[in-house]
Design a protein around this nucleic acid. Sequence first.
DNA 1: TTTTTTGTTGATTGACGAGTCAATAAACTT
DNA 2: AAGTTTATTGACTCGTCAATCAACAAAAAA
Lengths: 193, 193
Amino acid sequence: MPKLGMEPIRKEALVKATIFEIGRTGSLDVTVSQIAKRAGMSSALAHHYFGSKEDMFLAAMRHILTLYGAEVRGALAAAEGDEGRVKAILRASFSPGNFRREAVGAWLNFWVLAQSVPQARRLLAIYQGRLKSNLTAALRPLAGDRAPEIAASLGAMIDGLYLREVLKSGPPDGAAAVSLALRHLDAELQRGI
Amino acid sequence: MPKLGMEPIRKEALVKATIFEIGRTGSLDVTVSQIAKRAGMSSALAHHYFGSKEDMFLAAMRHILTLYGAEVRGALAAAEGDEGRVKAILRASFSPGNFRREAVGAWLNFWVLAQSVPQARRLLAIYQGRLKSNLTAALRPLAGDRAPEIAASLGAMIDGLYLREVLKSGPPDGAAAVSLALRHLDAELQRGI
DNA sequence: TTTTTTGTTGATTGACGAGTCAATAAACTT
DNA sequence: AAGTTTATTGACTCGTCAATCAACAAAAAA
């Protein structure tokens, strides 16, 4: 009963299943069979659509980063005022969509992957670059020359807060993370005056 | 030619080799044979001293955290003045001993391990707890009631800076990391006045 | 000196998992 | 209708690796 045009559907299911399974087990030691099963197909089919397990991982990474990028763009478009733009980026970073257990768990594992897979490293570098340039641009009107430095420290803090979320028990608390980051921002901005 | 009293020597060699190999490959997918070879013995002997691979990983984690703890204590003992104590913690965190490629790479992988191995999670929780209480105590005279919050954000930033170090190419730059963290501290402190 | 404890390894076991293949079937093309 | 492309899977190959075992050697204890 082969319906045609399955490829994109299967691929999307596999990507989501990959993220879910990595997040669930908290590690990259996830078998292709597990992923395929979760996505409702045989492991052979998974290999048919993605050449290798690594390809699946990379597609999953791209998916997460794409979602994040879209959310940031959306938030920026809706933001008003200079400070509003910075806050928008922060809120997007800790929105329920991105800041949920599986996604954060998967994200940490992708970071590990970046240590040994150049392609993964490139993807993360792109994420970091975009985050930094978004932050810097938003901060420029507020902090002038100090924008790049503040962007660097805010970026590090965002990643650090993600990292800490991994160890916490209980549900994720994006609001607390945002307010911690905002505190820092306020402190930095006030100093300039 | 069995000299007696080998156990502690072998164990230490294995722990160091474990950290080195995890840092080198950037992943926990390190075979016991690799570790044993690096430590100059057979894999069977590694299993003889540590029951399992997981035990080796946990011992390696303990070793890293112990070193870090010792360095912080030493720096605190030598520090002068309230602000000096905070700076001492920061400097210890980014000292060449802790802030070097393999150690940082291993540390990130241990964070991943903590997601699936409760014992590893406990160890990291202890690290976070100590870091937070050290920072809070040092900040109390400077920031009063706001000490806990500042400690939380400084802690997140420290971890975030570690995380970023993993992706950077080129040699580690602890000084830059320290100065970024210090900027943040200054901004927070100045606000209170 | 016999026995026990400690150190050490090559060889083996047993499990698991990525990737391939052959086969089957339904749709589309000519 | 014959041929081609797309979808799909069960079975299989081949490699890897954690963990165990059997055996040997030397020191210490009895």
